[in-house]
Amino acid sequence: MGPLLDSILSPAFGFAILRIMTPILFPTIGVAISSLAGSINIAMEGTMLMSAFTGVIVSYFTKNIYLALLAGILVGVTMGFVLGYFHLKLKADIILSAIALNMFASGFTIFMLFLIAKDKGTSISLRSLVFPDIHLPLIKEIPIIGEILSGHNLLTYVAILSIIFMYFLIYKTRLGLRIRAVGQNPDAAESVGIDVKRIKLYSLLISGFFGALGGLYLSMGYVSWFGRDMTAGRGFIAVAASNLGGHLPLGVFISSLFFGLINAISIYLAPLRLPSEFTHLIPYVTTIIALTFYSIRMTRKKKAYKGKI
């Protein structure tokens, strides 16, 4: 275990955790905000794919990273809108329509990739722009901490700032208050004149926005190309992470950090000749266990609450 310990105690490991956490934290914030309004968005996988793809394609053709960012976000928000339209207006089950949207995104991006790049695997032939790395002044001079915190991709910092944004949105704005009201008791919210459907739609649009940022980071930061199904289950991990963090800002941040940590460990275990299949299991098993503990706690809370009445 010596070499493992050495590499885990190095600042590079801390850096890797934040890097790996970023494409999980964005969609987790998205899932959390939609869950708070009581309309869980499990179409994150598809949203991220569509935005990741759009970002690469737009940046290749326009050579303009702002346009790529804008287009990616627009597509992500549109995914949120489509989900909201089908769920709220056409009364579709939100889980089933999200599954359909995920299938659509997976097929559609490969379809378009083939038409544009004549390749069904990756878009390596199309050079994509990437978001810049940021070296934090002052902080980068601090030993160890500087190495861990400085030099990340711009979007990694945006992701961490998004937690603060989420805190303000949820606790300090009218919209946030309404989102929580609608999620906790839609009937009560309706009775005081809140347009429940509209608030749910807003929460899905916001969640699409964060899904888009997660997707854009994947294809224009983490790597600089689009690959088929490159989200690799992160949209679903986000559902787990959001549940784990109780859909609240700090909880969401800690649980995403935890997933970053677990994933980083399984990457660091790989060269130690431990079977990689086995190390890959860790995050999924942990999610199940953690989610079970979370729901046990919720059940007890509910019982205690009932006992008081």
Binding site: K91, S97, M103, F111
Partner: peptide, 18 residues
């Protein structure tokens, strides 16, 4: 992948109760 696109559109419309 054309087929996946058709499939998902069909599913989306069928799940839409209204």
């Amino acid at each position: 992948e054309m087929v996946s696109v058709i499939q998902s559109v069909i599913i989306l419309l069928i799940t839409a109760e209204a």
